[in-house]
Amino acid sequence: MRGLKKRRRIQIILLAFAALVLSTGLIGYAMRDGINFFRSPSQVTEAPPPPTETFRIGGLVEAGSLKRGQGETIRFNVTDGGASVPVTYTGVLPDLFKENQGMVGTGRLVDGVFEAREILAKHDESYMPKEVVDALKEQGVYRDPSVEGANGS
């Protein structure tokens, strides 16, 4: 009787462990496409990711670089002050998208051009994604809008 209880406990522990391993594997498999790392334009030019990797890039839309092509294709450069990466996007841009404004794009780097499948623009005068602010501060080009507004600029 005593050996049967011990065997049953070991079976339950092994079954629970197998269920834990299986659920962890399924969660990892489901999230493999949902995890996108953020990179600044300087990081992309220093160590370009492979064309199969989807990632997010953010910075400022470079002044004078916004060009509209055939149909809904838009080309522009995104910069963090230290480097600039060409971007192409086919679709409708957000209303607040314009030159010298913050943006974050999700896509892939193919032959040195970031092919965006999603573009996000800042949504008011003072908001910019944390990753973009950190990248701009690293390059020394970040301007705090709350300070500019207080100085009357």
Rank of each mutant, 00 (worst) to 15 (best):
M31F: 09
V44H: 01
V21A: 08
G112L: 15
V104G: 08
S146I: 06
A121F: 01
M31Q: 09
N36A: 15
Q139S: 10
A19P: 05
D111C: 08
R8D: 09
V92W: 08
K130D: 08
L60W: 00
M1V: 11
K137G: 00
D144Y: 00
T106D: 06
F76Y: 12
G152R: 10
L26F: 07
A121R: 01
V141E: 04
K130Y: 06
R117A: 14
E99L: 05
H123D: 08
Q43G: 14
D124K: 01
S126L: 01
E125A: 14
F97L: 06
S42K: 12
V104H: 06
I10Q: 07
I13F: 10
I119V: 13
R68A: 13
F76E: 02
L14V: 10
R7P: 03
S40H: 10
V85T: 02
V87A: 08
Y142D: 00
T52L: 14
L96E: 09
F97H: 03
R8P: 05
A63T: 07
D124I: 00
G91H: 04
I74P: 07
G102H: 02
G140T: 01
G71M: 12
F55I: 01
Y89M: 11
L15V: 13
E115A: 12
V85I: 10
P145W: 00
R117H: 10
M128K: 05
R7L: 15
G28I: 08
E131S: 13
P145S: 06
G25K: 07
D111I: 07
E46P: 06
A18M: 08
D111G: 12
F76W: 03
P129M: 05
F76M: 10
G152Q: 09
R108L: 04
R8W: 09
D80Y: 04
K130Q: 15
G59R: 05
L4P: 13
Q70S: 13
T90S: 15
D144P: 00
R2W: 13
G69Q: 09
P129D: 11
N151Y: 12
A121I: 00
E62P: 05
V113I: 15
R7K: 12
D134T: 15
P51K: 00
G102T: 02
L60I: 02
K137Q: 03
V92S: 14
T73H: 02
Y29E: 06
R68E: 12
G25N: 08
L4D: 10
E125K: 11
N36G: 09
E131V: 04
P51W: 02
Q139N: 09
M103A: 14
R2V: 14
K98A: 04
T54H: 12
S42W: 06
R9V: 05
V78E: 04
R7W: 08
A18C: 10
T106F: 01
G149Y: 12
E148V: 06
L20C: 15
V110S: 03
R75Y: 11
E53P: 12
Y29K: 08
A16N: 15
D134Q: 13
A47M: 13
G152P: 15
T88F: 02
D111T: 11
F38E: 03
V104N: 07
A30V: 13
G58M: 01
R75L: 06
S153Y: 11
F38Q: 06
A18V: 09
Q70E: 14
